[in-house]
């Protein structure tokens, strides 16, 4: 089951970003709550939170100096972090569809895919 493998969900976002709000942070947060997972969000405009956001993305995500948001990570029970989604620069509709696909994927449906 998913709860056996995932401890929490981390999302890097900004309040002004339409790919983040209401497209990603809210549905991912709701799904995490529904599954009883920890949920952590990092606002890149918050000086304290951006340090954690930068570290997450540099170490595990799609890093570039002006990196794309949102980016979503899963924290597994063994302590590993998996990057699972980056927003689509092509358009908000693609990001919305990708979030829906992610939330309907084996990660959140019951059992993480093997890597």
């Amino acid at each position: 089951m998913v709860a056996d493998q995932i401890r929490g969900v981390h999302v890097v976002h900004a309040q002004w970003c339409p790919h983040c709000h209401p497209t990603t942070v809210e549905p991912v947060g709701e799904k995490a709550a529904e599954l009883g997972l920890e949920f952590h969000d990092y606002d890149i405009d918050n000086p304290d939170q951006v340090k954690k956001a930068d570290a997450l993305i540099r170490d595990h995500g799609d890093w570039s100096e002006d990196y794309l948001i949102p980016q979503v990570f899963l924290e597994m029970r063994d302590g590993t972090i998996r990057h699972v989604l980056t927003g689509y620069s092509e358009g908000v509709e693609l990001t919305r569809r990708a979030v829906a696909n992610l939330l309907n994927s084996p990660y959140f449906r019951g059992g993480a895919p093997a890597r």
């Binding site: 570039s64 100096e65 990196y67 990057h83 989604l85 990708a98 992610l102 994927s105 093997a114």
Partner: peptide, 20 residues
């Protein structure tokens, strides 16, 4: 700094693949 990157996986593309 003018170039940004993104990874696309089977799960966010909505592809039904055995390998994710």
């Amino acid at each position: 700094t003018d170039v940004r990157v993104a990874s696309r996986y089977a799960w966010d593309l909505g592809l039904d693949r055995a390998s994710n």
